[in-house]
Structure formats: structure tokens, C-alpha cells
Design a binder for these strands. Structure first.
Lengths: 186, 186
DNA sequence: CCAGAAGATTTAAGAGCTAAAGTCTTGCGA
DNA sequence: TCGCAAGACTTTAGCTCTTAAATCTTCTGG
């Protein structure tokens, strides 16, 4: 999750150029071009997170719940996983998973039942409602994402995609273990 | 803050291409190119957040504390602001700000004193130590960021910068009020 | 058949935030 | 000058989301 709370009156945020100028003032050896790229990228990602959170709010779910829906969808039909497996995939402790599932069962996003073939296990299964919410979140996200990229032609998109991929490869090579919790809609 | 907790054993994360393939399977109308860009960008941002958090851990501060240091540095010499103003800039309630400052005073990152010209007000001022920590965080970030972009030549960086700026402009036009809490190092 | 492993849940406790109440200081009107 | 409302910060109480550790149930190997 990213934000989207009642958030007390926020002060005006600096534009990227202003922000970089301040950094140059306080830390003169900074490379303005590098800093501009990094700042812009971070800010785009943050804004995307806010946008996704809003969309989820419209759907009446939290991003924590969305993560669970996503994990089940990714697992594929019949959209079932155990709490332990879910916890592993989401990077939570089993205890946190239990609580999260409690809520989601109450909201009819998933069902919880014992596995009759092995009664130690529990099966969490996506409900129709849960799957619909996920699909709807994807529809909304698709609209937003297309708008986001509307100024870039196909060829430009290919270039951007390639450059971002190279950045990602660099990070993953230097920090192979830096997974970090899954951000918003991804 | 982004992550960097003891994090229970995490499952292997899907590569971008795999992730997009799953989305195509479950939501066939998705545009693979758009999705790839969005996913990659989000993931780069997330990895950056993890990297920054690690660096801050090395410095012995949290990203919440870093935000305060940054706000004071941005304010410029003599690096002073009141708790209320800080709260506004960070998007926190004054109550939360008080608690955060309590910790930071104890860690010698800032000082808290009454304004003698108007004893209703309190002045939070960056300590030498606090400023040093911020400067050191910038040095570490600069190294990391240069590495991140090492595969892109100057001309490519200019293109990337421009494309990201266009994306950001699109978002800000469609969601002018979507500030969202400041991510990690930005 | 039983000891112990596995898997999930319950319980207790911590971090960090908010809303609302409380405290202290200032400044203004009578 | 007194009284008191307003402003700025702090305190208190309570909420949400986590985690760690204890507990409960069920299964499995010897």
C-alpha cells in the first residue's frame, strides 16, 4: 500500500527541477541528470501507487487484500492456496496471514475450508466476488496506464521499456536479494 | 518507508516477462507492452526503496527520520522549522510529529527548544550529526544511482529523463491532487 | 500406538498513527 | 490590567497491522 489516508493538509510539493536545484545547493557534487531521472521515476511510481489505491478504494478493498487476490489469481484456476503458502508469497508471518484472511472471508473475497484429504491443511479459495474485484481492478488499471503512456508512441515505448529493463537488471545484479514487499498493483 | 523488515522466507519472485504472461493468461485484453513498462518501472522503484532503506540502516536511522532530516535540509540554513510546519510538509498530524521528534532528539539528530521571541512556538533544528547523516545518505545514494544508470549513455539518459517527465506530466494533469506520502529517498 | 513434526490459529505485545482532550503562552478587548 | 479566546504543541486513549511465542489439531514414521 502507498498512502490515501485522510492526510492532514499537505504543503505544496516541489517540482522535480526545484527539488534537484535544492539538492545541488545542499550537496553540490550531485549529478543533476542522474538525480532528475531518479526523482522523476520515484515520483511517477508514487503517483501510480496513489492512483491504484484510489481505484481499490472505489472497489471497497485495501491494497493488502488486493495482494492476496493477486496471489490467488496468479496461482491460476482453481484459485486455491493454503495460508502458509500465501504467507510465504506475500512475505508475511502465518499469524498475519490468518488475520488478513479472517477479514477477507467476512467480506466474501475468499473462502476458508479444511482440506478433507489432509485435515491439518486449510484451503483458501477465491470467491466469484473476489475474482470479479481483481478483474475490475485490472480494467481500471489498464485505463489509467494507457493514459499514463498516451504521449509515447509505440517506438518510444519500446525504447523506454528497454531502458527500464536495463536499469532493473543492474539493480538485480548488484542486489540479488533485495526483494522488498510488493508495492501496489504489480 | 518501503520494507526491510526481518521478512519471513519469501517465495521466488516472478520475472517481469513471466508476470506479464500470467496477466495475459488471466486478463487477456491487457496490453503486454504497457504492462511491461508499468511493471518494470514499479519494480525498479521498489528495489530502489529497498536499497535506500538498507543504506539508512547502515547509518542507523529510519526512513521516517530521514524524511525529517530532508525537510530541514531543504528548508536551508540555519535548518530550522517548527513542529507544525514539519508536520504539514511531511503530511503527518502534529501528534505524530511530536513523537517522531522525541525519538530524533534522543538520537541527537535534531534539537528542540522554545522560541524565546514567541514562547508558544518550538524550534526544531538540525544538529551537526543530523546534517552529516543526511549528507552521507546522499553520498551513498549517488553511488548507487550512478551504478543504476551505468548502462545508459548520456544521450540515452536524456531520452529517458524526457520520457519519464512526460509520464509524470500526464499523471499530474489527470490527478492534480494525488500527492501521496513521500516515498524513500527523494 | 505413540512421539514428534507440520500447519494453522490464538494470544500478548509493539510500532506508529489519529482524534480529541489538555497545557501553556500570547495578545486583545473592556 | 484583567479575563479569556486563539494558537501551537503535547498528552492520552484507542486503532490497525504486525510479529513472536504458545497452543491446538492432525498426520506420519517407527
Amino acid at each position: 500500500m502507498t498512502a490515501e489516508k485522510p492526510a492532514p493538509a499537505t504543503a505544496r510539493e516541489l517540482g522535480i527541477a526545484e527539488q534537484v536545484a535544492v539538492y545541488q545547493r545542499e550537496f553540490p557534487t550531485v549529478d543533476p541528470q542522474v538525480e532528475t531521472i531518479v526523482q522523476t521515476l520515484s515520483r511517477v511510481a508514487r503517483r501510480m501507487g496513489v492512483a491504484y489505491d484510489r481505484q481499490l478504494t472505489v472497489l471497497g478493498i485495501t491494497s493488502a487484500e488486493w495482494e492476496v487476490l493477486k496471489a490467488l489469481v496468479v496461482a491460476g484456476s482453481p484459485y486455491r492456496l493454503g495460508p502458509g503458502e500465501l504467507a510465504k508469497r506475500l512475505g508475511l508471518t502465518p499469524a498475519a496471514m490468518t488475520h488478513r484472511i479472517d477479514r477477507m472471508v467476512a467480506e466474501d473475497l475468499v473462502t476458508r475450508e479444511r482440506d478433507e484429504t489432509n485435515r491439518v491443511r486449510v484451503i483458501i479459495e477465491l470467491t466469484e466476488n473476489g475474482r470479479d474485484k481483481w478483474l475490475e481492478s485490472m480494467r481500471m488499471a489498464a485505463v489509467f496506464e494507457e493514459e499514463l503512456l498516451q504521449d509515447l508512441a509505440g517506438e518510444e515505448r519500446a525504447v523506454l521499456s528497454h531502458q527500464l529493463a536495463r536499469m532493473l537488471r543492474r539493480i538485480e545484479e548488484s542486489q540479488p536479494d533485495a526483494l522488498g514487499r510488493t508495492a501496489d498493483l504489480d
